[in-house]
Write a protein that binds this DNA or RNA. Structure first.
Length: 276
DNA sequence: CCTGCTACCTGATGGC
DNA sequence: TGCCATCAGGTAGCAG
């Protein structure tokens, strides 16, 4: 559930399901899912999470950037889905399929699943204990994300716009799909340097980012995530995409062709005819 | 500080 | 069909 809209949709949908519930037991099935960044100590981290979570009540479900947080009276669990992580819900205690971490609640079990094992589950005493979370930039759907705020961020970066948008410590939550989509909508060339964007272009980009993320969130919530179905995934996102994964197809605006280019080792999709 | 590269993992897909 | 290469919605760590 990679980018902001997907994680937000999961947070919104999960909230009523687990808020107020007590975790009776947390079981780490694949300890790689709790492996700390340094890469060692995953067994110890697993024991720590299991003992910390026993009997704790979930006060709230929150999203910070692409992180999903379960907040307790003291401490947090932070989930990061990276590329392929997802959540599943079992109404009874019979689990099935590949589960990395199981949170057994009063009634039902929440499972963190990631066959690829990029995703992570961490126990945090406080937010600042996670460098990744602590350093997140402004949330693009918050009221703090103004045109002026974006202008400031743009002016202090020499990176190409596409790479700029991926930096989580500037704007938190945009990934490879919605960076391409935002730049298409703003009619800006992904290779342009951030600090060279004019005020009028910054205004366009601001609106594009907010519109693209809002629209994607709506789409992610209709239909809402169905954690009970292990094969569940977001439906219909292809229909709202205008650039991402559309290499060779016609631009919906100018009838040029969408091109795929490589930036920072990753794919960017753009119409180089109308994105200047 | 910034930038570019690699590693981390597994599975799906497409060409030959 | 089988095999191999390539690609995937992300980020941390490292060297320069």
């Amino acid at each position: 559930m990679p980018e902001l809209p997907e994680v937000e949709a999961v947070a919104v949908t999960l909230r009523p399901l687990v808020r107020g519930k007590t975790i009776r037991r947390c079981r780490i099935i694949h300890s790689i899912a709790v492996r700390p960044p340094a890469g060692y100590g995953e067994k110890r981290a697993a024991r720590q999470i299991e003992s910390q979570l026993k009997g704790r009540k979930i006060l709230e479900v929150e999203r910070l950037g692409k992180y999903l947080l379960l907040r307790f009276e003291r401490g947090f669990v932070a989930l990061h889905f990276r590329l392929d992580g997802q959540l599943v819900w079992f109404a009874d205690s019979k689990l099935s399929g590949h589960i990395d971490v199981a949170f057994h609640m009063d009634r039902g079990t929440l499972g963190f699943v990631d066959r690829r094992h990029f995703g992570r589950v961490q126990w945090l005493e406080r937010i600042a204990d996670s460098k990744g979370i602590d350093q997140l930039g402004v949330d693009p759907l918050s009221k703090e994300f103004t045109v002026g705020c974006l202008e400031n961020l743009l002016s202090s970066s020499k990176r190409p716009l596409k790479e700029f948008l991926l930096e989580q410590d500037k704007i938190a939550g945009i990934g490879n799909i919605y960076s391409s989509e935002s730049l298409w909508r703003a009619r800006l060339d992904p290779r342009r340097r951030a600090y060279r964007v004019t005020p009028a272009e910054a205004r366009r980009l601001h609106k594009a980012i907010v519109d693209v993320l809002r629209r994607a969130l709506e789409c992610c919530l209709d239909p809402a995530p169905d954690f009970r179905n292990p094969d569940w995934w977001f439906q219909g996102l292809e229909n709202i995409l205008r650039a991402y994964d559309r290499e060779g197809l016609r631009c919906r605006r100018c009838k040029g062709r969408i091109r795929r280019i490589e930036q920072g080792g990753r794919s960017t999709y753009a119409c180089l005819k109308c994105q200047k």
